[in-house]
């Protein structure tokens, strides 16, 4: 019972932080674009409004896909240590986390394919192609860290960096951090790697048939994905944190870098994006791996 309450509480926390980041991110991008922008709590209003709407479903698979997408990311979230705390007792294995993260994408793919809109199908095929692009450099960086620390537990990797900024993997392995940061841009689906949504090309891709509660669910999924992805980065490279406040602050730093890049770049075409990810961050990651091994 207590475990269930903990899981529920952690999920709410992840959604809250994700939506807060989305709102602040929109505000910052608006200021870069010389606009006033919406208030920082706009994402909460959006989700509230969307869940109050009637919504149209195409079939049962679409409903299931949306739920699967959110559930997949929430279950990933359970394995990411938040300032050393975790919702369930586990070793927080990195390989398991990356494996579970794909389920969110697959759920979205199922929902989009079931919606029957060709734009959504193209968007999903792009998202899965992009996954091929970013996973290889990200895994290479992770492999280096796993070899260096002799463990694949995210919690232990975070703990090994305790004791000041100089112990952080970010400082010890700057090249690895750089490669992971570029890959993170694609993982989060921000520009220049946002070919899967691309409003001007495929009318927002997977989101094109979503409305009302379904779009609300997609918002929540995105919020959780922000929490999970920045959380992994903080644990991998910024030494985790001793309390939740510091952890969220570090997460926000990672998110800030992402949206600052997002604001000033146009988007790659999908094949250009994959080619870029397989060359630039990949070679940086390989160099880092070589340095660790030698």
């Amino acid at each position: 019972m207590i475990a269930a309450i903990r899981v529920f509480g952690y999920s709410l926390f992840a959604i809250f932080i994700g939506l807060l980041f989305m709102g602040i991110g929109r505000k910052i991008i608006a200021r870069i674009q010389l606009r006033l922008g919406p208030p920082f709590y706009q994402a909460f209003l959006d989700v509230g409004k969307l869940f109050a709407r009637k919504s149209i479903t195409h079939n049962f698979v679409m409903d299931l896909g949306m739920i699967m997408s959110l559930a997949g990311l929430l279950s990933t979230m359970l394995f990411v240590p938040v300032a050393g705390h975790m919702a369930i007792k586990t070793s927080s294995n990195l390989i398991l986390i990356i494996y579970l993260m794909a389920i969110g994408h697959l759920g979205m793919a199922m929902a989009a394919a079931a919606s029957g809109n060709p734009n959504a199908t193209i968007g999903v095929s792009r998202a899965l192609t992009m996954m091929l692009g970013y996973e290889i450099p990200f895994f290479t960086v992770m492999l280096g860290l796993i070899i260096f620390n002799g463990t694949s537990s995210l919690e232990l990797i975070a703990q090994s960096q305790a004791g000041g900024i100089l112990n952080w993997n970010m400082v010890k392995f700057p090249l690895g951090f750089l490669a992971a940061e570029i890959a993170l841009q694609a993982i989060m689906g921000e520009k220049p790697f946002d070919a899967m949504v691309a409003p001007a090309e495929i009318a927002s891709g997977p989101m094109v048939e979503l409305g009302g509660k379904y779009l609300g669910l997609a918002f929540l999924t995105h919020a959780v994905s922000i929490f999970v992805e920045t959380g992994i980065m903080v644990n991998l490279f910024m030494g985790g944190a001793s309390n939740v406040f510091t952890f969220v602050l570090k997460q926000f730093e990672i998110y800030l870098i992402t949206i600052l890049i997002e604001a000033v770049f146009p988007r790659f075409r999908i094949e250009q994006a994959v080619k870029f990810l397989w060359t630039v961050p990949m070679s940086i990651a390989v160099v880092q791996l070589a340095i660790i091994l030698l």
Binding site: I29, Q33, D194, A200, F265, P266, R267
Partner: peptide
């Protein structure tokens, strides 16, 4: 043109 390739910052500054 900027918006067509996803560079909304340029579009917004130009609109201003």
């Amino acid at each position: 043109l900027a918006a067509a390739v996803g560079l909304y910052t340029a579009m917004n500054i130009m609109t201003a």
